[in-house]
Amino acid sequence: MNIVVCMKETPSITAVKRFTADMRLERRKEDAEINPFDEYALEEGLRQREKHGGEVIALCMGPVTATENIRKALAIGADRGVLVTDPALEGSDAIGTARALAAALQKLGFDLALFGSAAADSYGGVVPAAVAEVLGQPLLSFASKLEIADGRAKIERAAETGYQVAEAAIPALVSVIQTINVPRYPSMKGIMQSKKKPIDTFSLADLGVDATLVGVAGAREKATGSSPVDTQRKGELFSGNDGAADRIVAFLVEQKVL
């Protein structure tokens, strides 16, 4: 089975976030890591490979420096890596990203394309759906369990009071959530083998993607501002016996606690 795991390079959750003048997240190589949500997709890919055989490809769209994080995916166990990189891709929104990834998936060919449920830097969560749309293939989203049998992918999707079951014929796209598995650590052997595994690079021209449809040029969405979360603690003091209890109750109702 050909399994492609789509992964993004994101700044580590603990890194201080800064923005460029045009409101794009400033990405520093030293803060970059594999989007933590994608680790579950990679793990699932490896588990499916262990069950059904085949190959796991780690596919990443990003700057040239993202090779290092692809290498990490190879250390964890992917067989080879593919980096989609092109100056024209800079500033892509979710749709632009989906176009590039879809073209790469098409070029690679796949039975199963796995995604994390979102990226830890933007939380858009729409790329898997957009890729499915571009490819005209089914997406089984937010899987907490995945089984492949008889040419079909079957997932469980957690719902408030139980879970839904959905299935589709493969090739299919599946996005996974964190309860699906526990990602493994790169073993020493995996780390040493990772430098011998191949990483291919695709440009937009290689993929035949029109540069005006991606990057800043093709973005339909534009970030216009950002502000830090106000973490200042504010206290309100209710004192005395005179009506304090009523005011506390009113406050709790106002905060929707009661």
């Binding site: 990490k72 073993s187 020493m188 780390i191 040493m192 990772s194 430098k195």
Partner: peptide
């Protein structure tokens, strides 16, 4: 490779 091991 050293750095990858560190993270692991």
């Amino acid at each position: 490779e050293h750095e990858m091991f560190r993270q692991s």
